[in-house]
Design a protein around this nucleic acid. Sequence first.
DNA 1: ATATAAAATTAGTCAAGGCTAATTTTATAT
DNA 2: ATATAAAATTAGCCTTGACTAATTTTATAT
Lengths: 218, 218
Amino acid sequence: MHTLSEENYLKCIYRLWQDRGQKITPTAIAEWLGNNPASVVDMIRKLTDKQLIIYDKKKGVELTPQGQKDATLIVRRHRLWEVFLLEKLGYDWDEIHDIAEDLEHIKDGTLADRLDKFLGFPEYDPHGDPIPRANGKMAKRHSTTLADVKHGTLCRVAAVKDTTSAFLQYLQKLDINIGTKIQLIEKIQFDGSLVISIAGGERTTVSQKFGENILIDM
Amino acid sequence: MHTLSEENYLKCIYRLWQDRGQKITPTAIAEWLGNNPASVVDMIRKLTDKQLIIYDKKKGVELTPQGQKDATLIVRRHRLWEVFLLEKLGYDWDEIHDIAEDLEHIKDGTLADRLDKFLGFPEYDPHGDPIPRANGKMAKRHSTTLADVKHGTLCRVAAVKDTTSAFLQYLQKLDINIGTKIQLIEKIQFDGSLVISIAGGERTTVSQKFGENILIDM
DNA sequence: ATATAAAATTAGTCAAGGCTAATTTTATAT
DNA sequence: ATATAAAATTAGCCTTGACTAATTTTATAT
């Protein structure tokens, strides 16, 4: 079994792998976790010894099959708890992440599966991220962002990339949720700002950064 | 905020205080937690510094008002999670304690209260222990055991003292749950064994130790 | 090709929270 | 009252997982 720290590193590596698909360096991990690179080097050694990752200076850090399996389970637990907190306990969108961050480390053989069943086997968490199934498989991740589509496109908010409460609260203020329809009216050449219409409403301008954090369906 | 270890010590001290009402010594704490007495002495210093306990060689360890408040909240969380695990996730009686042992340490300002509401404000946990209310008050604890009543008495199982799975599984086998009616037919002088009838059924003999761990109403 | 900057690594430190072994204090029994 | 046993305490050590500072390796730009 893994310690809390080991689990956090595993999850971090998993997320960097999913998000960027690029070479995962000690520095990238350190930045993501807010840790010192020296600490990361230590943990890389530890996770390598446990055969959860492989580290090659050229290729960066990669998860072994076991590492992937373990990381997936942590993500599964995290996302299931998020559903629980939102749907059953009535928390807001921006409050659930941090609590799930703790709950995801509760280890019990059948807990995730029971929770999954209790929640009705949800496919996506409240931020639109797919929940890994008990068998490790999971629905496709949305990859197109609002910043990627061309002007005129009408799309549906499928997920968000950023899960900080600053971002989520901004979304609340704009009245954007998973499922909200957004039409991209215009892209400003100068700085990539986006002029959009939310649920058929008035024009609003948002930043490029904002658009890059909204994942969509069409 | 308290560390995991500090919380476990607090809870332990609280339980010893409730259970025995006697002087709480470092040795007693060490035994309960399965730790070395030397470690206990260290933690007593730490909790004293945090003004959660007062330690006096004559009187033993006592909780300060703040210590009581904090310990009560941990117990509240533990018992609420036990209800959740049993009622919502379908765990068995003997499985919930260990998982709740981890869940109780999840700290979020409103989590316990939301869970409480979600569960319908239960008064007792699945082992019959009263759940501290949000205001710190709690229902009376049952104190009469099956070993205390005189022969012939018909009583109702209100709670159990021991929560080890060995004991709880034995109860399952005997088909005893909270609410089960038990009549004490006879007490054996020699060793305190009890001859009982469970839910009006056949006579069964149980040990004195067994009887001391069954708390009853009449 | 080499100077400079960035990244990675090593070495040594620290706090938390355990431990063992040794010692001191307190209780208990004769 | 004193010997013995039990309990409490101290001292010193260990592991985990962080840190800083110093060093080495790797990339990048001229």
